[in-house]
C-alpha cells in the first residue's frame, strides 16, 4: 500500500537510536523481523531450486521454450510461462489503469459527497472479495460467453484472465489514486481556478500532470500485484504452456504453473526444484517491480517536501 509522508515524518526523533533496555530491544527486533523473513524466503527458494542444475542447465531453464515436465526426458523451459505472465499482466494493467482513473475522477470530481462515500465503501468491500470468487465467475460465466460469442476453441484464455484480474485490481488502484487526488495541494488547484480554469481544465492541466509520479508508482504497485496473482490465472488462463500469440489464446502463467503442478510432483524431484525456480522468478520480478514503484514514490515525496 502507498502511504503518504505525514508532517511529523522526518526529523522528529533523535537521529541515532540507542537500545536502552529490554523493551527497546524487543521492539527493535520485531522491526527487523520482516527483513529476516525476506532473507529466509530467498534462502529457501534457492535451497529448493539450485539442485535443479544437476540435471538442467540454467540457459535451458530461463530460455528454454518448452515446459513439458511430464514427458521423457522432461523439459523445463520457463520462457513461455514468463511470456504468458507478462502478456496477461500488461494487458490487465492496460485495462485497469484508465478504468481506475475514470472511477477516481468520477468519485472526486463528479459524484456528490454521499455517493462518493458509498463508492469508497463499496470499493473497499469489493477489494476484499477473494480472487478465487472472481476466478469462478471467469470460469463459469465469462468463459462460455467468450467461447460462443467469438467462436473460440476455449473461453479460458489471456483475455478472460486479464479481465478478471482487472476487476481484482480496480478497487485498490482506484482507492490509491483517490488518496493522492484528495491530498493534492489545494493552493495549486486554487491557483488554477483563480485564473478562471474550469474544473476539467484544472484536472487536465494541473492535477493529472502533478500526479504523474504517484500514478506511475501506483501503476507499478498494481502491476506487482497482478504479476503474482495465482488463483484467477490458475482457473481461467487456459493452462496451456504455449506462447500466446493472440489475447484469445490460452496460456500458462508462472504462478498458475506452480499451483497446478506442485500437487502432482514429489519432493526432491527435478520438477519440484523447477517449480521453486519459478517461485524465484516470480519473487524477484515482483520485488523489482515493487522497488521501482517505491522509488518513484519516494522521489515524488522528496519533491513534494522541497516545495
Amino acid at each position: 500500500m502507498l502511504q503518504k509522508l505525514g508532517k511529523g515524518d522526518v526529523d522528529i526523533f533523535s537521529p541515532h537510536f540507542k537500545k536502552n533496555n529490554v523493551v527497546d530491544s524487543v521492539l527493535w527486533s520485531s522491526g527487523w523481523l520482516s527483513n529476516v523473513i525476506i532473507i529466509a524466503i530467498i534462502f529457501f527458494l534457492f535451497y529448493n531450486w539450485v539442485p535443479l542444475f544437476k540435471t538442467v542447465s540454467p540457459i535451458e531453464f530461463f530460455f528454454g521454450t518448452r515446459w513439458y515436465p511430464t514427458v521423457t526426458p522432461p523439459l523445463y523451459g520457463t520462457l513461455p510461462l514468463l511470456i504468458a505472465t507478462i502478456e496477461i499482466s500488461l494487458f490487465s494493467l492496460i485495462l485497469t489503469f484508465p478504468i481506475s482513473i475514470v472511477v477516481t475522477i468520477f468519485m472526486t470530481f463528479i459524484a456528490p459527497k454521499k455517493i462518493r462515500y458509498l463508492i469508497k465503501i463499496f470499493l473497499e468491500f469489493f477489494s476484499s472479495i477473494p480472487s478465487v470468487v472472481l476466478g469462478l465467475i471467469g470460469l463459469s460465466i465469462v468463459s462460455p460467453y467468450l467461447q460462443n460469442t467469438f467462436n473460440l476453441d476455449t473461453g479460458l484464455n489471456v483475455f478472460n484472465a486479464s479481465l478478471m484480474l482487472t476487476f481484482l485490481t480496480i478497487p485498490i488502484t482506484a482507492s490509491m489514486m483517490e488518496d493522492f487526488m484528495v491530498s493534492f495541494p489545494r493552493e495549486q488547484i486554487e491557483g488554477a481556478e483563480a485564473l478562471g480554469a474550469t474544473s476539467i481544465e484544472t484536472l487536465w492541466k494541473v492535477i493529472l500532470p502533478g500526479l504523474k509520479g504517484p500514478f506511475a508508482s501506483i501503476a507499478m504497485l498494481s502491476m506487482g500485484r497482478i504479476f503474482g496473482e495465482t488463483m484467477i490465472v490458475l482457473m481461467i488462463a487456459g493452462n496451456a504452456a504455449i506462447f500466446p500469440t493472440s489475447i484469445f489464446d490460452p496460456a500458462k502463467p508462472l504462478s498458475a504453473t506452480i499451483a497446478a503442478e506442485m500437487g502432482e510432483t514429489a519432493v526432491g524431484t527435478p520438477h519440484f526444484y523447477a517449480l521453486f525456480g519459478i517461485g524465484v522468478i516470480i519473487f524477484f520480478i515482483t520485488l523489482f517491480i515493487n522497488l521501482i514503484g517505491e522509488s518513484i514514490r519516494i522521489k515524488y515525496e522528496m519533491e513534494m517536501r522541497r516545495n
Binding site: 525476506i38 527458494l45 529448493n48 503474482g228 516470480i282
Partner: peptide, 19 residues
C-alpha cells in the same frame, strides 16, 4: 523490507511455507 514483504505474491508464500 516491510513494504517488500507485503508485496511478496501469495504463491511464493505458499512455496516458502511448504519449504
Amino acid at each position: 523490507s516491510v513494504a517488500n514483504l507485503a508485496g511478496v505474491p501469495s504463491v511464493v508464500h505458499g512455496l516458502f511455507g511448504m519449504a
